[in-house]
């Protein structure tokens, strides 16, 4: 056996564990889910029909269509708001905080990550409630005369999400910012650019990989999240993960749950392709 062939076999050997892992825990379950999504529930039995009935229902039943729309609306708003809040925060930490304090600043910024996701959501439920800190403060300083409803609304869901994802985005954008040479900004200003134009035309475009990586992760995690809308949304509208759980927990309709999951996966895939050109993980 030639050395070259031995090297190829050895290289392949390194890949095999990852390949087996992916096949066992992604490819096979995904294939089973696709097949199951082409079945339907007849009475209480799963009947394999290999038709697209579930997909037709998803895009024709108003309650299911609304689930997709609600999920997309919430996800887009959360992603945009999180980016808008995280970028300045990351910039302040990376550019304004002295180097020796940056580690502490980042740690403080992501401190809420240390608490349980469910506990954090319930905490928001108490904070945003009628007798919560937010409402009582607004009433106390005279901005409101009486409480308004935030809890059990889409706004509460978005606030809960944004709180979580700003931390995530701050990390990805910060790690991108600290890799930038200060010479970029100096060069732009030497050439007459204002601070605003330096930011807009130089710094922000250079941090696009960090922004897009964080935004993509935000999109994926947000659109697939069940807990936050369940706790903070008040059950007043259902997102896709809630609809999936409803099929599983209440109806025992695994085919429809599979079909909804595949639609969800397709949406995430589309989001990936839309942002792929900026996704440079080595830059964050």
């Amino acid at each position: 056996m030639s050395i070259e062939k031995t090297e190829k076999i050895r290289a392949f050997g390194f890949v095999v564990p990852a390949l087996l892992w992916t096949v066992a825990f992604f490819v096979i379950p995904f294939a089973v889910m696709v097949v199951l999504s082409l079945a339907h529930l007849e009475g209480r039995d799963v009947v394999q029909t290999f038709d697209l009935g579930n997909y037709v229902r998803i895009f024709s039943e108003p309650s299911l269509v609304k689930g997709i729309v609600v999920s997309l609306e919430i996800t887009f708003v959360v992603t945009i708001v999180s980016v808008l809040l995280a970028w300045p925060l990351a910039w302040i930490i990376a550019m304004q905080v002295p180097k020796k304090w940056q580690r502490l600043a980042i740690m403080l910024a992501v401190l809420p990550f240390w608490t349980s996701y469910v506990v954090r959501s319930y905490s928001w439920a108490l904070v945003l409630g009628e007798n919560g800190v937010v409402m009582q403060t607004l009433i106390g300083i005279g901005i409101l005369d009486e409480p308004i409803q935030i809890m059990a609304t889409r706004t509460a869901t978005i606030i809960g999400f944004v709180h979580f994802f700003v931390m995530l985005l701050t990390l990805t954008i910060y790690s991108n910012l600290v890799q930038l040479s200060p010479n970029y900004a100096r060069a732009a200003q030497d050439l007459g650019a204002s601070i605003w134009n330096t930011m807009r035309l130089v710094i922000v475009p250079l941090t696009l990989p960090g922004i897009m990586t964080g935004a993509f992760l935000t999109f994926v995690l947000c659109i697939g999240d069940y807990i936050t809308p369940q706790i903070l949304g008040g059950g007043n509208e259902l997102t896709m993960p809630q609809l999936i759980m409803l099929q599983l927990g209440r109806r025992g309709d695994f085919p429809m749950a599979s079909a909804l999951s595949i639609v969800l996966m397709c949406i995430v895939t589309l989001a990936y392709f839309a942002s792929a050109r900026w996704l440079k993980m080595e830059r964050v």
């Binding site: 319930y122 439920a125 108490l126 409630g129 009628e130 007798n131 409803q149 809890m151 059990a152 706790i231 008040g234 059950g235 007043n236």
Partner: peptide, 17 residues
């Protein structure tokens, strides 16, 4: 105001929501 399962219903009633 809301459609909730046991815990969120209890919480809402207990907190005056």
């Amino acid at each position: 105001r809301q459609v909730g399962e046991v815990v969120s219903s209890q919480t809402a009633l207990a907190t005056g929501e």
